[in-house]
């Protein structure tokens, strides 16, 4: 049986995916998303034939933003914003882990049938990417804590990046970087709101997104 470094690291990502289904603390989720960010960012170094200087710079910048800046900003936001640390699940932890298993099995099955046209030879690339997308979606839908939802969104972004790194499109660095900067801007604004203005807390008294229901006309 042949192993390559890409599949080995991606198997760690899959484990972290499973872990994030069961995580009950926002802090754990931040660590997990930071880990995924770092791993996902270094993948292009292993699968590309050769990296151009520009590509290397972009990839390193991505690594810093994904692995350090975004998790740190969220961390600062929950520290200063005095936001609750529990993810407040809608779907319970055991059921979530079961969902996580189903997601991994489902994506493995699905990726075999999809024809994404990616770099061949890496068995786990597509399943991991789709699993990250699905996990992000799951966190968005099944967690009440706004920060947990933000993390779900960033996790989806990681998945999109992973799909993109498998494709060999010439301008993808720029496009990916653009999306990343959008996400960064969103997270930074959230941090500024939480730290300087403390608005989330003041306005809503809570970050429970189920309370948004009251805005319905």
């Amino acid at each position: 049986m042949m192993f390559n470094p890409v599949d080995i690291i991606l198997s760690f990502v899959l484990l972290s995916v499973l872990f994030s289904f069961g995580a009950d603390r926002v802090l754990t989720l931040i660590k997990l998303v930071g880990f995924q960010g770092v791993v996902v960012s270094i993948i292009p170094f292993f699968i590309g034939d050769h990296m151009s200087t520009g590509g290397t710079v972009f990839t390193l910048a991505t690594l810093v933003i994904r692995g350090v800046i975004i998790p740190l900003s969220i961390f600062v936001a929950i520290r200063k914003g005095a936001i609750r640390r529990v993810v407040e699940p809608i779907v319970g932890y055991h059921a979530s882990i079961l969902c996580g298993l189903a997601v991994i099995i489902g994506t493995t099955y699905l990726s075999g049938r999809l024809d994404i046209g990616s770099v061949s030879g890496f068995k786990l690339l597509e399943p991991t990417a789709i699993a990250l997308l699905a996990t992000g979606m799951f966190l968005l839908m099944a967690r009440r804590n706004a920060i947990a939802m933000v993390i779900g969104y960033i996790m989806m972004e990681n998945g999109i990046y992973l799909v993109g790194s498998g494709l060999s499109v010439s301008t993808r660095h720029i496009v990916e970087f653009g999306i990343l900067l959008d996400v960064l801007a969103g997270v930074m604004i959230m941090m500024i709101m939480a730290v300087i203005l403390r608005n989330i807390k003041q306005t809503f008294d809570d970050v429970d997104t189920a309370l948004l229901r009251t805005l319905k006309d």
Binding site: I90, T209, L212, R213, K216
Partner: peptide
């Protein structure tokens, strides 16, 4: 359908 629950709205998108 317009119940105000953001989580189910995300479900609609999915």
């Amino acid at each position: 359908m317009q119940h105000g629950d953001i989580h189910l709205y995300i479900g609609y998108i999915l």
